[in-house]
Nucleic acid binder design. Structure first.
Length: 534
RNA sequence: GCGGCUGUAGUUUAACGGUAAAACCUCUGCCUUCCAAGCAGGUGUUCGGGGUUCAAUUCCCCGCAGCCGCACCA
């Protein structure tokens, strides 16, 4: 067996292959591309469809407790008020003009530093303005401190305040600090607040280091109808999940479902990412496969959560992502949204780092309750067994189609060696995609094209296979070249029609990864495909 | 969004202040009895816009796009 490895600049090789062979193109390529958008070519769309089909079959059709849904991309705008996206999908960011650092306003803490004394400071001597608080009690503002959010933000602020006091040579008692995050800063105090990158300590002089917080709304806006006024504003959905929640009642009333059950949806979602990066990994338009799995409020959500994570891991392995490249990341409790009981991500080791692939959030009854409130419609479910009404809780497995596709390409791309016709080893590029995902399942190749009888048999077999599978017919060039061509696009099998085929109906089956060949007949081939593609 | 680097054919790269080249890929024909063979032929390129210049793909500016780092990623 020859050695196989991924090149150091795997992403470059992959991007090049994707374009060269028609998997993924930059969107609007002829106009110079558009940042954060991609188009899937002839092979890319097959691969993508295969991922979606496999997921849908395994998680919807092959289960008794799942139903599907395909909601519109644009929902009633109130949907996004209820979900919190209108208010929370914006992240106010603060830029430091000097260090060029950027902070999230809600993670940047600051405090005014005041000192208590029994006599006022003399303005002329110190430049400080004291305020009279009571008998023999004066309070004086001596500066500002700042620190980034951490386990010891408050201690850090306090230390900096002490340092400031010491440096200024000021005596007196430190007035208790009142730390605020930067969303509570205003034009009055922003010029005085120091940037943490520059020490985070400042006196009472204007330093103008930080910019006022700026909001970045991640939702794409559009207008429904011809009128472009505020009442017509609508959003392209930033996630498919809300389409499921707003259809919960409809599915409940018509779908003959009983808790616990899940609703699955595959569809496009849009996020105005500040900075798309890493090929298709963070795109502004992408496709999600989401499930909302509804359970009783008193059910063991942790067990359910765990089962879905395990199901996700098993499925990813089944489509060819090696377990060694997968890991789990549990979001720290303090970072969770107030309604989330727990979120675990399945991570994948991409060439550009370990990144989130599939998120599993336990969202409680937050979403349904919100929609119940905003719509005025009951989201309650009557549980026949328990004889009671409740709003179900939910576990949400959410994964990006494009990310799985990218992960499959990254995991599958390999360069190894194959002998040429003289037996000399040559470099070979091979995409080791699992047969279920491979865009082309079989290539049918007549050994030589100038023998009409071989071509005729090959064409017949091709036509027959084509009725059930994506197959490729290729008669141009030497046989080895044609094998390599298929290796590069991940075709798992090639069948070669030769002169023995005419005599006994058998042909050569050549396997992509091992390059092994065996003689089989048509019946065996179809049986093999049925088994491996199931 | 900031900083650095970059942009020539589908891909990888070369060259030049005087109007662009190679390899691979792709396509056609011939040849070919199992791992990128050979011969002949064909398509196709200076990211966009401005400026300097007699002349710009080359130098300058602005956009756009990509890569790397920082920041961000509900």
């Amino acid at each position: 067996m020859s050695t196989s490895s991924a090149p150091a600049n795997l992403m470059d090789a992959l991007v090049s292959l994707c374009k060269r062979r028609g998997f993924i193109f930059p969107s609007s390529d002829i106009y110079g591309g558009l940042n954060g958008f991609f188009d899937y070519g002839p092979l890319g769309v097959e691969l993508k469809n295969n991922i979606k089909a496999a997921w849908w079959r395994d998680f919807v059709q092959r289960r008794d407790d799942m139903v599907g849904l395909d909601s519109s991309i644009i929902h009633h705008p109130t949907t996004w008020k209820a979900s919190g996206h209108v208010d929370n999908f914006t992240d106010p960011l603060v830029d430091c003009k000097v260090s060029k650092q950027r902070y999230r306003a809600d993670q940047l803490f600051w405090a005014a530093v005041n000192v208590e004394t029994d006599e006022p400071f003399s303005i002329t001597l110190t430049g400080l303005q004291s305020n009279h608080l009571g008998p023999d009690k004066y309070i004086t503002l001596i500066g500002y401190v700042s620190a980034l959010e951490s386990e010891r933000t408050n201690e850090e602020l306090l230390e900096k305040a002490e340092t400031l006091k010491r440096k200024k040579g000021i005596r007196g008692k430190l007035h208790p600090l009142v730390p605020n995050d930067f969303t509570y800063a205003n034009t009055e105090n922003i010029p005085f607040i120091p940037s943490p990158a520059l020490g985070g300590i400042n006196g009472i002089d204007k330093v103008d280091q930080l910019m006022p917080p700026r909001s970045f709304n991640m939702m794409f806006e559009t207008y429904v109808g011809a009128l472009r006024d505020d009442s017509a504003v609508a959003y392209l959905r930033p996630e498919t999940a809300q389409g499921i929640f707003i259809n919960f009642k409809n599915v409940l009333d018509t779908g003959r479902v009983k808790v616990p059950f899940g609703i699955a949806q595959i569809g496009k979602a849009f996020r105005n990412e500040i900075n798309p990066r890493n090929f298709t990994f963070r795109s502004r338009e992408f496709e999600q496969m989401e499930i909302e799995y509804f359970i009783a409020p008193d059910a063991d959500w942790q067990k359910c959560h765990r089962e879905w994570i395990d199901a996700g891991l098993a499925w990813l392995e089944s489509i060819g992502l090696p377990r060694a490249l997968l890991s789990e990341y549990a979001h720290p409790k303090e970072k969770l949204s107030h309604y989330s009981k727990g979120t675990v991500d399945i991570m994948f080791k991409f060439p550009f780092g370990v990144q989130e692939l599939w998120g599993f959030a336990a969202r409680g009854d937050f979403d349904l309750t919100q929609h119940q409130q905003f719509s005025g419609k009951s989201m309650e479910y009557f549980d026949e067994a328990a004889k009671k009404k409740y709003v179900p809780h939910v576990v949400e497995p959410s994964v990006g189609v494009d990310r799985i596709l990218l992960a499959a390409l990254c995991a599958g791309y390999a360069e190894d060696e194959a002998p040429d016709e003289k037996g000399k080893p040559e470099k070979r590029v091979v995409l080791r995609l699992s047969p279920r995902l491979a865009p082309v399942k079989v290539a049918v190749l007549p050994l030589v094209k100038n023998k009409p009888e071989l071509v005729a048999v090959a064409e017949q077999l091709h036509a027959k296979l084509q009725r059930k599978h994506v197959v490729f017919y290729d008669q141009s060039g030497a046989i080895g070249r044609r094998y390599r061509r298929q290796d590069e696009i991940g075709t798992p099998w090639c069948v070669t029609i030769d002169f023995d085929t005419l005599a006994n109906g058998t042909f050569t089956l050549r396997e992509r990864d091992s390059m092994k060949q065996e003689r089989i007949d048509e019946k065996t081939l179809f049986a093999l495909l049925d088994e491996k593609l199931d």
